[in-house]
Structure formats: structure tokens, C-alpha cells
Design a protein around this nucleic acid. Structure first.
Length: 611
DNA sequence: GGTGTGACTTGACCCCAATCTT
DNA sequence: AAGATTGGGGTCAAGTCACACC
């Protein structure tokens, strides 16, 4: 059997009226499997299509046929060569293989700051001891007496050697990776060959949580076939476990989209292997998400009026819900589920805000009723913002704060489940996160409208696009650490600009000279010269402008990450429409992967698309 | 309601290969 | 050819939300 490799998605969609809102039913048709030629194939094709028309009905099944090769397991541990030594308390100590493996995890991280953190060291040491022989346990009693430097040096040398490999060797590795990708990186789901997202099982190592994580440094154990659940069709060719091993389970659950799962030992949560964002199943979901956000657009004013009304409610519960919703809407905060204390870093979202996270200022500078937010959100990224709010919100907040300690919940009568139940009643499919999607997308659309000037150049248009994107990223608080090389790369760019500037003035001077000469001689040759110089000036001006745009863009982007909003919050059809409207090449906005992920939108949206 | 679990989306950061510069 | 830079992909942690069960 062989497959199409080029993706040429086709879509069918229906409008379904519900509650005055238009719903879409997504029917995404990526490439078909190309089977044998001839009548038989034609007949099969017809069968597939007949099947497809009736599929995705009401029973919640996600697929009918699923076949894959299973995961790629982590490579087995390779013991260190004899010359790499470990010292305890200054004395050479030969470690057993299991203890050595865990020690190498630590050694590999030695240059990272977190290996100096007490919590990291403590957790590592505790888990490391579990891997030691009783003899090792009795000898090694203090992690501070462990010397991992030779191991660390060895790994550094290894990675150095890898960099120094010849072209041939590198090519071989590349080919091998390609082979593995071809073998394990694709599956067949309902007549389509689809790319798998993460087909490699996570290798063992030391857990590194984000922020101040209580479990940092713990051993993330090796996943064996016996830990792995395979999900595929009964009538498919089941993936084979490695010789002499067996899977934990092979199941055939078409109510879920994952192919492989296992339970991770740090939090005890389940990890999955799923399809790539370019797949039908992910694309449909993505489309659906934006359609829900568009339905919110249609009723958002009604909901806003409602929560403003609720600020006056005599029920505390309702007031809290209404203020929280106001924050979610206005500031694009996340819902804020409760978390188990001591299991994860201490971070919050809207519903889990605590008294200590906000400060109220009846007056601040020339503004009234200012709320200052300062808390750690997802991934322990700090959210800091000062916002003037309406008097009624302010008064409510004062009320919520009464008689509370800093560590008490701000919204003590509210959680995400209550909030989402309420939202569900207001609009079918509405949850807290839809507001983020809606506000992000609507902001992009508005900003694009506002910032794009019809007669600016393509680079200027791209700057406008990035600025619109940036407005969203700021709204959603998508920050990044300023790149380590930021200052330098900025400087380099500035040098380039200075040089261009010099070049420009030199060329301008030449143009002037050419003009004078032409005035004097009036011959063809001097006329040509003027033209040549004029063109040169123009070209250099363009180059200079492009550089300046780039510099502005980069500077403004120093601590802002655009990727997350682009990938997860912005209805791609807005961008596609914009690109088509202004004749900006699609590649300037979406790279190859993004174009694959958003193939449905590129296909669907015309320049008049309105979110 | 409260709690636990499962499935799926969102998120920042790291690394490396491709590309650009010297 | 070697070194520097950068974009993009991969990684895997950390969210959201639905649902089952009591």
C-alpha cells in the first residue's frame, strides 16, 4: 500500500441554526489513501466516501479506523566508559549501572542553576538513593560530597564531538532519523495518512518543573513497554512490542484521539501520543473552537450587560461570579482551577486569586479606583497590571476583601466549575477560556484594521501585522525571557543600519553629481547615469527602511512572545483574509508548519472574512 | 457540592540545523 | 571554511474542562 504525501485538504461544511447563532459542522477531508489502480480501487474509494458521509454522527466516536506502529522507546542506557570516574568524598567510587544512570542525569545538568537549589538536590538525592545498592547507600550519605565533574566533562566532550562530526556522519544520522520518522511518525486514521505529533516516549531524566516547584529534581523513570497502553482499531495491524516484552494493554477506544498513553510517575498524570496539528482531527477541533468564539461575539454585549447587572446582586456568590467574569473578559485572565497544594508550583488564575494578589487604590495619580494585580500565572509567569475599574467593581472588591487574610481566596464563593456552569447556561459551549480566544481574535482584527495603511510597503505591512499580533500577546500576557543575545543582535542590526545610512548618503551624493553632470552635458550617457543612480538610491532607501522596520519590530518584541497567540488564540482566517486583501505573501505571516496547521483556514477564508 | 480522573489545549524554553557573515 | 546568528521544531510541563462517582 502506498500513500499520497501532498496535502490537499478539502472541506465540506454545513450551517446549523441553533439559538439564533450559526453553527458549522466541520467536515475536513485531507488526502485520501491512494490504493491500487483500477476498478477495485474505484469501488473502494466509493465505499470510503459513502462511509465518510455518515461518519461523525452523534455517538461521540472520533474515528473508525486507526492503525499505527506504536511509540519509539527511549534508547537503553549506555554505561559510561571506564575512564570516567565518580568520586565520593574525594575517593573513587564505582557505581552500579542503575545508580550510575541516575547520577548521569544530574551530571548532565550540572551547569544549570537549578542543580544548586536545595529542593532540587534534596529530591534528586532521595530518588537517587532508591536506585543504589545497599553498599552504595551505606557509602553515599551526603550529596554535597558527590563529585560529578568527570561525568559532566565527559558529556560536554561528547556533545562537542557530535558537533565536530564529518558531513558524512551527520548525513547518516539525518537519514536514520528520517527513516524513523517515516516508520513511526505517521498513522492511518479513517483513510487518511496523518502525521503523529510526538511519537517518541519521553526519556528518563530529572524532573524540572517551572517556577518554584516542590518536585523539582525527582527522578522521571524510564517508560517500558509494560507501562504503555496502545490504542488502535481492532481490525488494524497492531503495533508490536520489542522482542521479549509486552504492552500493558492494547485497547480499541474510538471515543478518544490518542494512539499511545502511559502514566508518568511525578504527578501520576497520563501522557499521550496524539496527532500533529495538521491532522484532520486537530483541525476540526481548532475550527470548532473559533466558531464558538464567534458565537460569543454575537452575544457578548448581552453577557456584559448581564454581569454588570450582577455586580448589584444581593447574593455574594453572584457578585463574585460577575466580578471574576469581568476580569476574565477585560483582562483575558485564565479560569484558574484549584491546585493541590504542595504538588505543584504556587500559581493562580482568576478564580483562584488570593487577597495578596491584588491591591486597591481609591486614587492613583490622576485615576480613580485602580486595581493592581501581581501574581504568578501559568508556568509561573508573573502577571502585573494596574487597571482602573468601575466604581461598582471596586466597591465589590473591597467587600470581598473584608476580614480576610492575605492567603485567603479573593472569590471564596466561586470556582471554575461554578463559573463554567453559569457560562454554559448563557451560551451553548461557553467556558472561561472562550473569552480569551474571543478577545484575542477580535483584538487582532481590530488592530489590523487600525494599523494597516493601504499604501505602505510590504515590510511596513508586516510590521503592522506583528504589532497587531503583539497587542494580543500583551493582552494574553505571553512573555518571554529577553533572548540572551538580544543586546548584541540589536547592536549588530544598528551597525547595519548605520552602514546603510552612510551608503545612502554617499549614493545620494553620487546622484546629485550625476544630475549636475547631465545638466552640463545633456548627453545620453549622463542621462543613463542619473537613472542608474536614482534607482540605486531607491533600492538603498528600501533596504534601509526594511532594516529599520526589523529593528523596531525586534525591539518591541524583546520580552513578548508572539508564537503562542498566533498558534492558539488567533482565528487564522483573520490573518488569511488580511494577507489576501493586501497581497502580502502568505509565507511572511505563516511558515511551513503554520501553513499546514492552518490549511483549513487558508482554503476557506477570502479577503472579506469577518471574525 | 466535592473529589478524582482523563483527555485535550496551551505554554515557555531549549537545541540544532540552516543560513548568514567574516 | 569557520564562526555567529536565528528561526523553527521539539520537548514536556502546566493549564482547562468534562464527567463519573459519592
Amino acid at each position: 500500500m502506498h500513500f499520497f504525501n501532498e496535502s490537499d485538504p478539502r472541506y465540506i461544511f454545513f450551517h446549523v441554526s441553533s439559538d439564533g447563532c450559526i453553527l458549522f459542522r466541520f467536515e475536513y477531508k485531507p488526502k485520501k489513501i491512494k490504493t491500487e489502480n483500477g476498478k477495485k480501487a474505484k469501488k473502494r474509494k466509493q465505499e470510503y466516501e459513502d462511509e465518510e458521509e455518515e461518519e461523525r454522527s452523534t455517538d461521540g466516536s472520533k474515528w473508525k479506523f486507526l492503525e499505527h506502529k506504536g511509540p519509539v522507546l527511549a534508547p537503553p542506557y549506555e554505561p559510561l566508559p571506564g575512564h570516567v570516574r565518580f568520586f565520593y568524598d574525594g575517593k573513587l567510587l564505582r557505581l552500579s549501572a542503575p545508580a550510575e544512570e541516575v547520577a548521569t542525569f544530574f551530571a548532565k545538568m550540572l551547569d544549570h542553576e537549578y542543580t544548586t537549589k536545595e529542593m532540587f538536590r534534596k529530591n534528586f538525592y532521595k530518588d537517587w538513593r532508591k536506585e543504589m545498592t545497599s553498599e552504595e547507600k551505606s557509602k553515599i550519605t551526603d550529596i554535597n560530597k558527590c563529585n560529578f565533574t568527570e561525568m559532566s566533562e565527559y558529556f560536554k566532550a561528547q556533545s562537542e564531538a557530535r558537533k565536530q562530526m564529518s558531513k558524512d556522519e551527520k548525513l547518516k544520522i539525518k537519514e536514520e532519523n528520517e527513516r524513523i520518522l517515516q516508520e513511526y511518525g505517521f498513522c492511518v486514521m479513517d483513510n487518511h495518512k496523518e502525521r503523529i505529533g510526538n511519537f517518541r516516549i519521553e526519556p528518563p531524566g530529572l524532573f524540572r518543573g517551572r517556577g518554584d516547584h516542590p518536585k523539582m529534581g525527582m527522578l522521571k523513570r524510564r517508560i517500558r513497554p509494560e507501562d504503555i497502553i496502545i490504542n488502535c482499531s481492532k481490525d488494524s495491524k497492531h503495533p508490536k512490542p520489542p522482542q521479549g516484552t509486552r504492552w500493558k494493554e492494547v485497547r480499541h477506544d474510538n471515543k478518544v484521539t490518542w494512539l499511545v498513553s502511559w502514566t508518568e510517575n511525578i504527578q501520576g498524570s497520563i501522557k499521550y501520543i496524539m496527532l500533529n496539528p495538521s491532522s484532520r482531527i486537530k483541525g476540526e477541533k481548532d475550527w470548532q473552537k473559533y466558531e464558538t468564539a464567534r458565537r460569543l461575539k454575537k452575544c457578548v454585549e448581552r453577557l456584559r450587560a448581564q454581569y454588570r447587572e450582577d455586580w448589584k446582586s444581593k447574593e455574594m456568590r453572584v457578585r463574585q461570579r460577575a466580578v471574576a467574569l469581568y476580569f476574565i473578559d477585560k483582562l483575558a485572565l485564565r479560569a484558574g482551577n484549584e491546585k493541590e497544594e504542595g504538588e505543584t508550583a504556587d500559581t493562580v488564575g482568576c478564580c483562584s486569586l488570593r487577597v495578596e494578589h491584588i491591591k486597591l487604590y481609591p486614587k492613583m495619580d490622576d485615576q480613580e479606583y485602580v486595581v493592581e494585580f501581581d501574581f504568578l500565572g501559568k508556568d509561573s509567569i508573573r502577571y502585573y497590571n494596574k487597571m482602573p475599574v468601575e466604581k461598582r467593581v471596586f466597591k465589590n472588591l473591597q467587600l470581598f476583601l473584608e476580614n480576610k487574610q492575605p492567603e485567603d481566596d479573593l472569590f471564596d464563593r466561586l470556582n471554575t466549575s461554578i463559573l463554567n456552569k453559569h457560562l454554559q447556561e448563557l451560551m451553548d459551549g461557553l467556558t472561561a477560556k472562550v473569552f480569551r480566544t474571543y478577545n484575542a481574535s477580535i483584538t487582532l482584527q481590530q488592530q489590523l484594521k487600525e494599523l494597516t495603511s493601504p499604501d505602505e510597503s510590504i515590510p511596513a505591512k508586516i510590521l503592522s501585522y506583528n504589532r497587531a499580533n503583539r497587542a494580543v500577546a500583551i493582552l494574553c500576557n505571553h512573555q518571554r525571557a529577553a533572548p540572551k543575545t538580544f543586546e548584541k543582535s540589536m547592536q549588530n542590526l544598528q551597525t547595519k543600519i548605520d552602514e546603510k545610512q552612510k551608503q545612502l548618503s554617499a549614493t545620494r551624493k553620487q546622484l546629485k553629481g550625476a544630475k549636475t553632470e547631465h545638466k552640463a552635458s545633456h548627453d545620453d550617457r549622463s542621462k543613463k547615469m542619473v537613472e542608474v543612480k536614482r534607482k540605486a538610491v531607491q533600492r538603498i532607501e528600501e533596504q534601509l527602511m526594511k532594516l529599520q522596520m526589523q529593528a523596531t519590530d525586534r525591539e518591541e518584541n524583546k520580552q513578548i512572545a508572539l508564537g503562542t497567540s498566533k498558534l492558539n488564540y488567533l482565528d487564522p482566517r483573520i490573518s488569511v483574509a488580511w494577507v489576501k486583501k493586501w497581497d502580502v505573501p502568505m509565507e511572511k505571516i505563516y511558515n511551513k508548519t503554520q501553513r499546514e496547521k492552518f490549511a483549513w483556514a487558508i482554503d476557506m477564508a477570502e479577503e472579506d472574512y469577518e471574525f
